[in-house]
Design a protein around this nucleic acid. Structure first.
Lengths: 198, 198, 198, 198
DNA sequence: AATGAATGAGAGTTCATTCAT
DNA sequence: TATGAATGAACTCTCATTCAT
């Protein structure tokens, strides 16, 4: 059930839904329009998806999965903690900025009642390595002892803000600015002991 | 056009809409239900609002305005920069945690296509004093020289994360934890020179 | 109940209704719009008229009455039959072309189910003199012995066609053309005996 | 796009609309009633027609087309001018009297703002042969040199008046009376030279 | 006489979904 | 697997009318 093993039509439906829903919103995106723009019959959508909610849910899962995979790219546990932190940060930034539509979709639907809490929970597995990384950081004294959800929310908000800036930008964010943003983020979670570490 | 000068029925409609939409989402909240639960006739809604979108838009504006006012409560420019920073942070936290339904509504609709960019822009005025505060902080060397949007987004994300934790909580956030969260936030935006300042 | 003894507001309502209904049609002319454009409150309309249908009906009657009066202007029974015929014809033509909005209204509503057959019948009295004139013409041998309704319909259609031409016109109808139209009309109803009479 | 190539349901919708609208008028004929009496679901109407106005417009076009075809039945250019004139006249009379509902519909909607001027213009092609016939009549000296629109309007009014008489009638119009009506019509448009021609 | 906020039945229309092909 | 005509419940919104003031 990953994105590469999908039948063509199913993929076309998912991609069209992503685009239309991000542009117009959920309820301004009728299934008939999805069908038309995806080049399939209305009924075909119902071969692949139970109903509209499940279509959105599956799209959400797929993107979360893709985001999780991108997040872990080039992971190298032999690197120092802060270098690994920086890599994860950049990976997320890259996913957001290189997939702006997916980014906007996830922004919109992460807090929406369309996504059931089950769906939300199921997709947490893709982020386990990063969660573990933060937890181990607390144990090893790199990261402040704050609730995980707060740390994750904080970091996510920072990457999101930087990504928005980049996407809004003319000009886009420079490498220096990106480094400053990562440092800002790191400073908000690192312990005193690691002030000069980065 | 502020919340205290509204006719009773208009206020009832707005409050009911806020509650229902946050619970069920925009398109699972028919106007007929809003009317029923607000205790007015369906047509009455259209006496006060052009259509459903404009109703949501006005609700959004009203809440943004209210949030802006809460944000500035007890503002005291004679205090040190970091104390003022802390006050704004807490004010926002208080608004979020004491108005959980409004908080959830704003979370959902701040990134949604239901809110036009005009509406979004119009409501920025309520935040001008805080924006000015951050800008002056950059000038006086308290705050890092990073793009305003990034700083604002970062801070907003942190307060939001803390508020969510508090609202999800059993137990709610302790005063110590709140202080730690504010410190985390401050550390991400303050300059090196003010490391010991807080 | 003639047009000169009406209270100002009632007259304003009637005139506004005439204009709006002719421009937009019956069901694209809400009472609220009539009220607004007439400069009165919605409720005021219901002081003067029982309901929308009765308002249209009264408007129709008033115009039919006005048309009937114009039709008989300068009536002179001492003139020859054909000269009298010509006068009636021109009077109707003048009413249509000098009151184009009323003309269009009457055209639209003369065949519409909005006007009850009672209303239609009631207003026939204003045309009695002309009907009598035609009937007497049949008796005296000026007019062919054809059913009255046919004769009236025929003549009405001819004046209507001429009026439309005039109103559509650049250029408007010349006096010569008008005379030719009247002659055409006369030729369709006069008897053989009066071929050279006109 | 002619009446014989329509899907069954579309035809049922058109026929039902014709009947209901002629009986009750446009705005006393809800789409739900059309659906019910046509034996289709409400949504099905919108599969075939964009909206109510377009449904009326298409109905109007179809009937104008049908009327145009009936008008030209048995056309025989080898006949004398006045015989051809008489044929057209009778054809129109037959269409009106044999299709009384269509006749009433066309009467009501020909002058109504529901029908756009584009729709009106588009359907003129079906009458071109008759228009040409009248124009050639002017050239050959059979018909008076009067504006085409006036001639057409005049003739149309006469056939309409005769048809109404027939439909109202008990008794219906006799053949003699019909001939007299046609003669009346002919006398209003023919030149002096053809007085004895008919 | 005049107002206009309020009503609520009912209008036109949409759209997720089905099912015979 | 794929189609798309057909469904009909449910939606947003309108508007003739009322009535307390």
């Amino acid at each position: 059930m990953n994105i590469h093993s999908l039948p063509d039509k199913k993929l076309a439906i998912l991609e069209t839904t992503l685009r239309l829903i991000t542009e117009n919103g959920f309820h301004a995106t009728p299934m008939s329009l999805v069908a038309k723009e995806a080049g399939v019959a209305a009924g075909t959508i119902y071969h692949y998806f139970e109903n509209k909610n499940q279509l959105i849910g599956e799209l959400y899962s797929l993107l979360k999965q893709k985001m999780g995979i991108t997040l872990l790219q080039n992971k190298d546990t032999s690197e120092s903690y802060s270098v690994q932190f920086s890599l994860f940060w950049k990976n997320l930034f890259i996913y957001f900025t290189q997939n702006p539509i997916e980014f906007r979709f996830l922004e919109q639907y992460s807090t929406s009642p369309f996504i059931s809490s089950e769906t939300r929970t199921e997709n947490l597995i893709y982020y386990k390595p990063v969660i573990d990384f933060i937890e181990s950081g607390i144990e090893t004294g790199h990261i402040r002892s704050l609730p995980l959800d707060f740390l994750v929310g904080t970091l996510f908000g920072q990457v999101t803000s930087a990504a928005k800036l980049h996407l809004a930008g003319t000009p886009e964010i420079s490498d220096d600015l990106l480094d400053a943003a990562i440092k800002s983020s790191w400073d908000s979670v690192r312990t005193e002991s690691f002030s000069d570490y980065y």
